[in-house]
Nucleic acid binder design. Structure first.
Length: 549
RNA sequence: GCCCUCGUAGUUCAAUGGACAGAACAGCGCUCUUCUAAGGCGCAUAUGUGGGUUCGAUUCCUACCGAGGGCACCA
């Protein structure tokens, strides 16, 4: 309906740069447009006058096109045009609510590849990875709701200096866990010149696979790391289609840089090969270091082609923390000179950083919160809270993961989260469990309706007309579009929270299942529609909907 | 030093240049012999500072103050 109104207004005014939206304030109609304000500026006329002229023309179109769903159009405030829809429109919308409600075909059959999470083997999988995963998974699902063919991929560091530091640490402390060995090696690398040289040597050996003992140690560590990551992905509900590794693109990356030497790249200090980004307002970065090894930069140049070989994508989305924004600008500027077509299809999304109250996390200093231990801690809290409810472990985990994901997805993607356990993980108010609880309530009402043999039906809506709940539910598809267009899952989070609030209010103030009430079938149908929308919405956030809690 | 983000209630977060700046937590007061009170209802509190552009600025420009990130061989 929103698009319909916009179309008519465009037709009438010849203008397209204006908005139609559902106003926050209920007294401002069901949809509102600022078209008269935009137009009056151009014409130098009074906005209210312009609005009235537009309305007169819109009315003619409506009569001609037989659009009777619009009941009333008004000018309000400085010149907004407010549209009021008929009750019948909302009831018709409710009839469309099924498990596909909210989906559209705007990107039908487009191929999109989304890279996210990106942990490095032999290092801690920490809550920063949890954040990347939650955001990446939700953005992927938003794409899927638009009809996209999508591949989820994960690009993981399995060669490079961090591996050398971890291996060096492990050689000296065989009993240490890898994450600790890494921290140990990373610190010694900073403090101790000899250690630094040895680490550099190991880096070369890992890269060239020239040392048997190191190969064996490395292979086992790699296998263990990946198996461990898999258990976490399973908990989080992500199923990657393909894992990419730095070792797959190291040689190709180096070759690209060497081939581009003198054209795209040049020699820098100590024989390193660099890309001078200053020409395009960026900075210089090293692509092949003075040891002749490709850096992350070089590897990232080869990755797009490997991805493309795997899946002929129309768009490639890469999701990382925003501390890499400037890095990606430079890398993509270099890529644009080498593979312009692929560079044009690539989009980097920098999400906020998860910081601890005491400062930035660092796996080098060991000042990190491991994802696994956080999940366990939250599960324990859920267990305590639900001590009297006898929930199974799967449900407890659903609630815990829901609480975690909600806390990440409730704010805009780009903003940092200062992760304070007590404050960040909530079960009340704005929270994952709040949404899940509302869903569970609806489900239990539906169970009761079945038991009492009250069948859902929209045939007999209450004579008082439709309420806010119906109106809000009709907006779900628009919210999906908005969230997807902006790459912002929090649009969904906010919407679902408001919807849940409205449903809970409705639930508290009316008896839904009541054989003596002639409107009970309608109320049950409303509850059913709510449960479906909530479930679909939670799916978009990557949060599961339990049947009881 | 240079570049990029960002400063909204006590706290954590919302708000394409628009109609009274929305929630939640914490606080105070109500509310379970209706289908799960992890709920519902009510009260109170906010745009860092100074200029500018505009009919209209939390949003755009500018200066200042403050926070975070990045800036050559890490990823």
């Amino acid at each position: 309906m929103k698009d319909e109104i916009k179309r008519i207004l465009e037709k009438v005014t010849g203008e397209s740069d204006f908005l139609v939206e559902a106003p926050k304030e209920k007294t401002h109609g069901d949809y509102s447009s600022n078209v008269a304000l935009v137009l009056s500026k151009k014409l130098g006329k009074n906005p209210v006058e312009v609005a009235n002229e537009i309305i007169a023309q819109v009315n003619q179109v409506l009569i001609r096109e037989n659009k009777l769903m619009i009941e009333k159009i008004e000018v309000a405030g400085p010149g907004f045009i407010n549209f009021y829809l008929s009750n019948n429109f909302f009831v018709e919308q409710l009839k469309k609510v099924d498990k596909n409600f909210g989906k559209n075909q705007s990107l039908k059959n487009k191929k999109v590849i989304v890279e996210y999470t990106d942990p490095n083997i032999l290092k801690e999988f920490h809550i920063g990875h949890l954040m990347s995963n939650a955001i990446g998974e939700s953005i992927s699902r938003l794409f899927e709701f638009q009809g996209v063919k999508l591949k989820r991929v994960n690009y993981q560091g399995d060669v490079g200096m961090h591996i050398a530091k971890a291996v060096w640490g492990k050689l000296r402390n065989p009993d240490m866990a890898w994450a600790q060995a890494y921290a140990f090696g990373a610190n010694k690398y900073e403090e101790d010149e000899t250690a630094k040289k040895e680490v550099v040597g190991i880096n070369k050996k890992v890269f060239e696979k020239s040392d048997k003992e190191i190969n064996k140690l490395y292979d086992r560590g790699r296998k263990d790391s990946l198996a461990y990551f898999d258990t976490i992905y399973k908990k989080l509900g992500t199923d990657f289609d393909r894992l990419f590794f730095e070792s797959e693109v190291a040689d190709a990356g180096k070759k690209i840089v060497l081939d581009g030497l003198g054209k795209v790249f040049e020699k820098g200090e100590k024989g390193a090969i660099v890309f001078k980004g200053e020409a395009v307002g960026l900075h210089t970065r090293v692509f092949v270091n003075s040891e002749g090894l490709p850096t992350y930069e070089a590897k990232d140049l080869a990755l797009p082609e490997l991805k493309y070989k795997y899946f002929k994508y129309d768009a490639s989305v890469i999701i990382t923390a925003h501390e890499q924004n400037a890095y990606f600008d430079v890398m993509l500027a270099a890529l644009a000179k080498i593979k312009p077509a692929l560079a044009a299809k690539t989009k980097h999304i920098g999400h906020g950083m998860l910081r601890l109250p005491e400062g930035k996390m660092s796996s080098r200093t060991g000042k990190v919160v491991a994802a696994e231990s956080l999940i366990e801690k939250v599960k324990e809290m859920v267990r305590q809270k639900a001590a009297d409810k006898a929930l199974d472990d799967a449900t407890i985990e659903m609630i815990a993961i829901g609480a975690l994901k909600y806390s990440i997805l409730k704010q805009s993607v780009g903003s940092d989260i200062i992760f304070d356990f007590e404050k960040s993980i909530s079960f009340e108010g704005d929270s994952g469990p709040y949404l899940q609880y509302s869903y569970v309530r609806a489900v239990s009402v539906l169970v009761k309706a079945r038991a009492e043999k009250v069948k859902a039906s929209l045939k007999n809506p209450p004579t008082s007309g439709v309420g806010t709940l119906e109106k809000m539910m009709s907006h779900f598809p628009e919210m999906v579009e908005k969230a997807a267009a902006e790459y912002e899952p929090h649009v969904i989070t906010l919407y679902l929270t408001e919807l849940a609030r409205e449903f809970n209010n409705y639930y508290a103030n009316s008896k839904i299942v009541d054989r003596a009430d002639e409107f009970s079938p309608y109320k049950v149908a409303l509850t059913q529609a709510f449960s479906i929308i909530m479930k679909n919405g939670l799916w978009l956030l990557g949060i599961q909907a339990p049947d009881k809690m």
